[in-house]
Design a binder for these strands. Sequence first.
RNA 1: GCCCGGGUGGCGGAAUUGGCAGACGCGGAGGAUUCAAAAUCCUCUGGCCGCAAGGUCGUGCGGGUUCAAGUCCCGCCCCGGGCACCA
Length: 824
Amino acid sequence: MSEHYDPQSIEQRWQQHWSDDGTYEVDNDDPRAPFYVLSMYPYPSGPAHMGHVRNYTMGDLLVRYRTMRGDGVLSPIGFDSFGLPAENAAIKTGTHPRINTDANVEALSASLRRIGAVYDWRREFRSHDPDYIRWTQWIFLKFYEAGLVYRGEAPVNWCPGCKTVLANEQVLPDGTCERSGDLVDRRDMEQWFYRITAYAQELLDGLDDLDWPEKVKIMQRHWIGRSEGVQFGLSIADGEGRPRTDTEPLAVYTTRPDTSFGITFAVMSPEHPRVDELTTDEQRPAIEAFRESVAGRSEIDRLSSTDSLDKRGVATGYRVVNPFNGQPMPLFLADYVLMTYGTGAIMAVPGEDQRDWDFAVAHGCDIVRTVQPPADFDGDAYTGEGPAINSGFLDGMEMVEAKAAAIDWLESRDLGQRTVNFRLRDWLLSRQRYWGCPIPIVYCDSCGEQPVPEADLPVGLPDDVEFMPTGQSPLTTHEGFLTATCPACGGSARRETDTMDTFVDSSWYFLRFADPWCDEAPFSAAAAERWLPVDQYIGGVEHAILHLMYARFFTKALSDLGVAPPGLREPFRRLFTQGMIRLGGTKMSKSKGNLVAPEGILDSQGADALRLAHLQVKPPQEDVDWEDFGIDGCSKFLNRVWRLGVPGGSLTAVVRSGERTDADDEIDRTTHRLVDRVTGEYDRWSYNTAVAGFMEFTNTLYRWVQSDEGPHADTLDAAVNALLLVMAPAAPHLCAELWERRNGGHVHTEPWPEADPGKLVDDLVTMVVQVNGKVRDRIEVPSDVEADVAEAMAIGSERIQEFLAGEVPRKVIVRPPALVNLVV
RNA sequence: GCCCGGGUGGCGGAAUUGGCAGACGCGGAGGAUUCAAAAUCCUCUGGCCGCAAGGUCGUGCGGGUUCAAGUCCCGCCCCGGGCACCA
C-alpha cells in the first residue's frame, strides 16, 4: 500500500467496508442501550452542498462517538421528497417529478456516502413511496375520526407564484411567500385544516422540559402566544345612550380589564358578522367603501400598513355602552382588528394603550387615564403599572388586584367570563398541487364528504399526467383520478384533488424510522417505545417554528389516539441547531444560486479534510462564511497525523526502548488530558476546540519525536493510538486506515478510551506570582503545594523582592497551585 | 418598538467556577533542507517604548464592585437574528 496519505483510495475503501460490514445497522432487539440520532429530513434537491455537509458531518460525528461509547445508535436517513420544486421542474421540462426526485435522492445519497456519513440504509424511505403515502393518509383518517381534521371556508394566504395556499407560518413577516418570495394575497376558500389549536396549551407547557436552545423555545412560546383575559359584552346603545335589551351585546376580549373604566370607544374587525346590523344608514356608504378597500389585502399587509390612523378606521354610527360606568361611546371599524383573534372586536382604552391613544386623537375620542403614571412620566399612553384612578370601585388597586376585581365583578353579574386566548391558529394543510400526498377524501352527491376506507389506501398519484404551464394541478383534470366510488352508498363520487402540505410528511417520519417495515400500522408502538423520543435532533434554526411545532403536535395527537405510546408526548428530547453557511454575505442555498459544491474538495483533499474544516472553522451553532474555511490547514494536519501514525514511516523510525523517562510520563499525562478534554468537548458540542486539541497534541508529539532524547516506543504507540481513537468520529477514514495498519481491527468498534483521573495533572505546575494584580514572576511548584509553602516561595522570589522594594505585603491572596497575589 | 444572541490581534476563533488574555488554525516574516522549486521541518508573529533585559497599554464605549474583570453590576453605542398593531 502506498506510503503517503492518499485520501481517495482509503476513503473509498472504508466507505465500502462500513456498508458491507453493516457497522451502523442496528436492529430493534439490539442489546446495547438505544440512542437515536437524527438529522432533519432532507429535501432532495440534488447533490449535497456545503450546508448539508456541515449538518451531516455533525450528526455523523455524534453517531460514531456514541457508538464507540457503547450505545446501539439508531442513525436513519430518508428523504422529504414531495414538494414544489420538482413539480415546477416538471412544468418547465415535462419530466415527471418522480423521475427527477428519485435521481436527486440518488445524488444526495451518494454525496452523503462520500463525506463518510453512516446510516442504517435498510430503514431508508421517501415521502412519495406508496407505502409512506399509505400511512400518511392513514394518520389523516385517524385524525379525521378524532375531529382533529376539518374542512372549512376561511380566508387563506394565496401565493400567486406557487399557485397554492400557504399556512400562516409559511408567510414571512413582510407578507411574502417563504418559498417563492411572491407577495401573498388573501382569498376565501374551502380548505382542510389540522386542529393544532386543540393542543395549544400542551404545546406551550411541553416546552419547559425540553433540552432545546432557549432561543427556539422562546420563538415557539411567542408563536403560541397565550394570553389570559376576560371576554365580556358591550351593550348596544339606544338613541339616549342607554343599553338596549332587544339585541345581543358586542363581545370583546381584553387582557387589561383593570382599565375598563377608561374605555372611550370600541372597534370591530371589517369582516365581523355584525357589521351590517351595527351600521347606520348614514354611515353605510363609508363603511361599505372601507370594507371593500380592506377585502383584497392580506392580513400581514393590513397589519403592516403605514397609513395614518384616520384612514385606517371609520365610524359605524352606532354606540355601545361600557357596563362598568354606563357610558355610551362610539363604535368603529378598523383594519388592524382581526376577525381571527379574540372575538374580532375590541374595547379601546387610549389612556393605557398607545395605538388606542393615536386612534382616539385621529378620530376625536375622549382619553381618560385609569392608571396613575409616575411623576416623571411624560409620554402619551401609560402602559406600566400603578394604582388605578378614575375607576370607581377599582381605585387605588394595583394592576394584578384590579384585574381580578374587574373580572370578578363581570362574572358575578354574568356579564363576562375569564378567557384564555392563543395566537396559534389551525394548520391549513391543503395545497392545490400535484406532487404531494393526496388527501384521502371523496365527495358523493348524495352522501357528501366521505373518508376513503382504510383498505383502499393508499390513494396514489396517477403517473399519466400532463403538467400545465399555468401551474394548475393535473389532478383536477385527470378523469381516472377524479372518478371514485362512494364508500357509503356505492354511487359515483369525485375525489378530493388537493394534496397535503409537505410539512405533514415531516411531522411523523422520525416515528416511521423506528420501524419502517411495519405493515399493520405507521410503526409499531413497541419500536416507538424503544427508540423515541429522538435523543439528539440536529438541524437548522430556520425550522424553529414550522416543522418543530407540527412534529410536536403530531406526536401528541398520535399518542392520544393510541398509535404512539401513551408516554410519548414529545418527539425530540434534545435539539441542536447548527448555523448556516453564507457566501458573499447571504445564506448559501439553491434558490440564491450561490452554492459551493463539495466535489472539488473531496477529489483533491478528501472527505476527512472537508469534515475537519467544517468542525474547526467555528462553534457549530454559529453562522459561518465560506471564505473563513481553512481546508488546506486541515489537509496539512491530516498529513502530519498520517506521517506520525503510519507504521514504518520515516518520522518514527528512531524510537527508544528500555527504561521510561520523565518525558514519557509527561507524554502519558498529556495523552490522558487529550482524552479527557475531547470527551468533554464532544459532549458539549465544542467541536472547534476539539479539533484544536487534536492539532495541539499532534504538535506536541512532533516536537517530542524530533527532540534529542526521542520517544519511547511504547509511550509513542499509546499516544498515537489515543489520538486515532478520539479523532475517529471526526476524521473516520484516516483513523480507520491507520488503526488497522497499526493494530489490526476497526477503530470505530473499539471502546471509547477513558482518561485516568490520576494522570490529568502534572507533578509540577507553573504558579503565577502577582504584585498588586500584575504578573511579576512564575515559579514551578508541586501541583499539591500547600498554601503557606506557596506564599513563602512567592515572597522568597528575587524578582518579587525587587518589586516589593522592602515593603511588607498588606494582604496576600493564595490560590495554590495557580496563583499568589501580594498587595502592598 | 419588543425579545434573543454577539462585539477579543491582519482574519476565524480560544479562555467550565472571576485567577497567566490571544489556545488552535489561516495569513505574514525569518531560517533549515534542495542545484532550484514544491512539499516538509523549525522559530517568530496584539500595539507602543527599548539594542536588550524589561516596561507599558490592551477584550465596543463610560462608570462601578473586587486583591484580581473578556467573565459580575449599572448606563450607553454598534452588529446579527427573531417577533412585530394579538386587543
